[in-house]
Structure formats: C-alpha cells, structure tokens
C-alpha cells in the first residue's frame, strides 16, 4: 500500500502539487491521468524518491520514502522515468542486469542470471540481449528499460508515461505487459498516462489530477463519464461503450472563443 499524506511540492511561489492525500491499494494497475501541468509526474517521482517533497509524507508499505534506506526501498519499489539517456555504451543484457544491483550489489549470482533471463524473455528481448542500446529502435530501448525494472523484481513498479514515443502496436504491447505484470507476477503498477482510453481499458483504478490536486478517483467506469472528463480536462467527451470498455471520443470540439 502506498500512502500519500498531505504532500506538497513547490518551486518558489509556484506550487505544483498542493496537499495530496491518497492511498494506492496493493495490487493491480493504477493509472494517474490529468492535463499537462497537473502534477502527475511530479507526484510519481516523489513517490519514487527521485524528487524531494516540500512537505508531507509518503509511505510505501510503511516505509517513509524520504528517510528509508535507499537500498531497502530499491528492493520494494522501482521507478522508470521517460528520458533515460545513458552515456556509457551498454548491451541490453548489461542494462537488464543492473536491475539486480539492489539485491546483489554488482556480484551477479546464478539466481540473478535466472532473473535477467526471465526479464529478457518476459519483454521478448532475448534475441536482442547482446545488442547495444544505441543500435535499437526507440520502442525496443523502452522495452529494455522496462525489462530492467522487471528484473529489479520489486512489489511496486512506477512508470512515468511509458507510452511516449511508442507507436500504437507497441503502446498496446506495453499496456498488455503491465496487465501481465500485475496479473501473473502480482506486482502493483502505478503509471502516468496521457491516453485516457488506454487507462479506461487496462487500469483497475484511475486517479485524476488537475492543478496539483486529486479531483477524482475510482474504477474506470466511474471516471469515464462526460461529467468527470469535463471536470478533469475541460473538454466535451462523448463516451461510448465498445466491447465492454468505455471509450471516450473527443477529437472534434465545438469552436470556442
């Protein structure tokens, strides 16, 4: 369980997250949605202790992310951000093996090797294992980073806009992967998404943010309403149920002044 207690983040006068109180349940896929500048990524990076909070407290299974030993936390929670440039020249296998660092501190055991192979397999990267990262396409590189996170084998996995730069096929693949991680491996996935329909189809819970606050939360069916969408995104959305999923259509908006 991730407990977020009155968390605030400000840069000078600008407050980007204003007193968020939220409990994210264990298990399943939780999608954080909202317009640009709503504070979604900021909140996620604070949970992943990559960014210090101005005030408040975040507990992951009772461990305070600000004060807990970084290494202990790294065996419980992993986070992947959008931009992952690496200066060194690494193969896919090297990168994935880094996921074992919190467990083995650089001395790979036989068991670590099994984890690496399993993560590569899980992401369909086994045949690319010895390729260098800079020889891969954007989508493959993205998957390699996700494989490292899988290899880290933590209960909680935080992903910041993992669909960025992915085409439709790979975006669907990534969402299916999150489902499999949650369903088959029992992981808790928290993911920042921009595509509301992906959130609707794949998430168990949706948390909607706007202007640094959580304004709605609940199951996709409760969030995917024209009312809620207007409150969150300030646009008119036509919601239609297609094959059991609620899909929002918003591509044409009435002209505004």
């Amino acid at each position: 369980m991730i407990e977020i207690r009155d968390v605030r983040k400000s840069y000078g006068d600008a407050t980007v997250v204003q007193g968020v109180n939220l409990t994210l349940p264990r298990g399943g896929v939780t999608a954080i949605i909202g317009p640009n500048g709503a504070g979604k990524s900021t909140l996620l990076t604070m949970i992943g202790r990559l960014l210090p909070m101005t005030s408040g407290q975040i507990l992951v299974d009772g461990m305070d992310v600000t004060h807990a030993a970084s290494n202990a936390l790294a065996r419980r929670l992993s986070i992947l951000r959008q931009d992952n440039h690496i200066a060194a020249r690494l193969t896919v296998r090297d990168l994935v093996a880094f996921g074992r660092y919190p467990h083995s501190h650089g001395r790979l055991t036989r068991e670590d090797g099994v984890h690496v192979a399993r993560a590569l397999e899980f992401l369909g990267l086994t045949h690319l294992a010895n390729r260098f990262l800079d020889e891969l396409s954007g989508g493959q590189r993205q998957r390699a980073h996700v494989a490292m996170v899988v290899c880290q084998d933590t209960d909680y996995i935080l992903l910041d806009e993992p669909l960025n730069n992915l085409d439709m096929k790979h975006a669907v693949g990534m969402m299916q992967l999150m489902r499999r991680m949650a369903d088959d491996l029992g992981k808790t996935i928290v993911v920042v998404l921009h595509d509301i329909n992906f959130a609707s189809c794949y998430a168990d819970h949706i948390v909607a943010m706007r202007d640094g606050r959580v304004i709605r939360k609940g199951a996709p069916a409760a969030i995917m309403t024209a009312d809620a969408m207007r409150a969150i995104y300030d646009i008119d959305m036509h919601i239609e149920e297609i094959g059991g999923d609620r899909i929002g259509v918003f591509y044409r908006q009435p002209a505004r002044d």
Binding site: R49, L50, N71, A74, L80, I86
Partner: peptide, 22 residues
C-alpha cells in the same frame, strides 16, 4: 566502490531507483 560506480554511470535517476545513496 566499482560496482556502485557502474550504477552511477546510468545517471542520477536510475542510480537512486536502484538504491544508490546518491
């Protein structure tokens, strides 16, 4: 600290995510 240095080479965010006291 050579193994930790390898992790630092991944950049700040990845190093923290992997539990290096950055």
């Amino acid at each position: 600290m050579r193994a930790t240095l390898d992790v630092l080479g991944l950049g700040r965010d990845a190093a923290i995510a992997l539990g290096v006291p950055y």
